[in-house]
Amino acid sequence: ARYLGQEERILIADRLRLGDGIRAIARLLDRNPATVSREIRRNTNPLTGCHEPYHAQRSSADRLKRPRPRKAGPGTRLWREILAGLGRHWSPEQIGNRLRHDFPD
C-alpha cells in the first residue's frame, strides 16, 4: 500500500510510547524511515507530544478527497472527446493537448 493505514499509525504510536526509534519502527512496518519520520512530524500533538493515530488517519482521508468535482464526467462532451482520442490510439498527452486546445475553459 502506498499510504499508511490506521493499523500502521496505531503501531507507530504504540512503539513510540515504548521508546522505539524511527528506524526500528520502520523495520517493523517494512517502510522507509523517512516515511515514519514524516508521519511522526505531521501528526504529533504539540501540546502533549504524543503521536495521534486516529487524528492522523482522519487528516489523511481528508487530504485524499478531491477538492472539486470532475470536469469530464460520463455522458459529457468532454468525456466523449476523451473516449474518441483513446479510440484513435492517442497517448494521454496527445488527448490532453487536444482538449486544452478545443476546450480552453
Results as ranks from 00 to 15, higher is better:
Arg2Gly: 15
Arg2Ile: 15
Arg2Leu: 15
Arg2Asp: 15
Leu4Gly: 02
Leu4Glu: 05
Leu4Thr: 15
Gln6Lys: 15
Gln6Gly: 06
Glu7Thr: 15
Glu8Ala: 13
Glu8Ile: 03
Leu11Glu: 12
Leu11Met: 14
Ile12Cys: 11
Ile12Glu: 00
Ile12Asp: 00
Ala13Lys: 01
Ala13Arg: 04
Arg15Lys: 08
Arg17Lys: 09
Asp20Asn: 03
Asp20Val: 02
Gly21Thr: 05
Gly21Trp: 06
Gly21Ile: 06
Ile22Gln: 02
Ile22Pro: 01
Ile22Ala: 04
Ile22Asp: 02
Arg23Trp: 01
Arg23Thr: 07
Ala24Gly: 13
Ala24Ile: 02
Ile25Asp: 00
Ile25Cys: 05
Ala26Thr: 14
Ala26Gln: 05
Ala26Pro: 00
Leu29Ile: 08
Asp30Gly: 12
Asp30Ala: 04
Asp30Leu: 04
Asp30Lys: 10
Arg31Leu: 07
Pro33Tyr: 06
Pro33Ala: 03
Ala34Pro: 03
Thr35Lys: 09
Ser37Tyr: 12
Ser37Glu: 08
Arg38His: 12
Arg38Val: 03
Glu39Gly: 04
Glu39His: 02
Glu39Trp: 03
Glu39Ala: 11
Ile40Glu: 05
Ile40Gln: 12
Asn43Arg: 01
Asn43Tyr: 00
Thr44Ser: 03
Thr44Trp: 02
Thr44Glu: 06
Asn45Pro: 00
Asn45Phe: 01
Asn45Glu: 07
Pro46Ile: 04
Pro46Asp: 00
Pro46Trp: 07
Leu47His: 13
Leu47Cys: 03
Thr48Asp: 03
Thr48Met: 10
Gly49Phe: 09
Gly49Met: 11
Cys50Leu: 09
Cys50Glu: 14
Glu52Ile: 07
Glu52Trp: 07
Pro53Asp: 02
Pro53Ser: 10
Tyr54Gly: 09
Tyr54Thr: 11
Tyr54Leu: 14
Tyr54Asn: 01
His55Phe: 03
His55Leu: 12
His55Trp: 09
Arg58Gln: 11
Arg58Met: 07
Ser59Asn: 01
Ser59Trp: 01
Ser59His: 06
Ser60Val: 00
Ser60Met: 03
Ala61Cys: 09
Asp62Phe: 05
Asp62His: 11
Arg63Ala: 03
Lys65Pro: 04
Lys65Gly: 06
Arg66Thr: 04
Arg66Pro: 13
Arg66Lys: 15
Pro67Tyr: 09
Pro67Asn: 11
Pro67His: 14
Pro69Thr: 12
Arg70Tyr: 14
Lys71Val: 11
Lys71Ser: 12
Lys71Glu: 13
Lys71Asp: 13
Ala72Glu: 08
Ala72Arg: 03
Ala72Gly: 14
Ala72His: 08
Ala72Tyr: 01
Pro74Thr: 10
Gly75His: 08
Gly75Val: 01
Thr76Ser: 09
Arg77Ala: 14
Trp79Glu: 14
Ile82Asp: 14
Leu83Phe: 13
Ala84Met: 10
Ala84Pro: 13
Leu86Arg: 15
Leu86Val: 13
Leu86Pro: 10
Leu86Ala: 13
Gly87Glu: 15
Arg88Ala: 12
His89Tyr: 14
His89Met: 02
His89Gln: 10
Trp90Gln: 14
Trp90Lys: 11
Pro92Arg: 04
Glu93Phe: 07
Ile95Leu: 10
Gly96Val: 07
Asn97Val: 06
Arg98Asp: 01
Arg98Leu: 02
Leu99Cys: 05
Arg100Met: 12
His101Cys: 06
His101Met: 07
Asp102Val: 13
Asp102Asn: 09
Asp102Gln: 08
Pro104Cys: 06
Pro104Ile: 08
Asp105Val: 01
Asp105Lys: 04
Asp105Arg: 10
Asp105Leu: 04
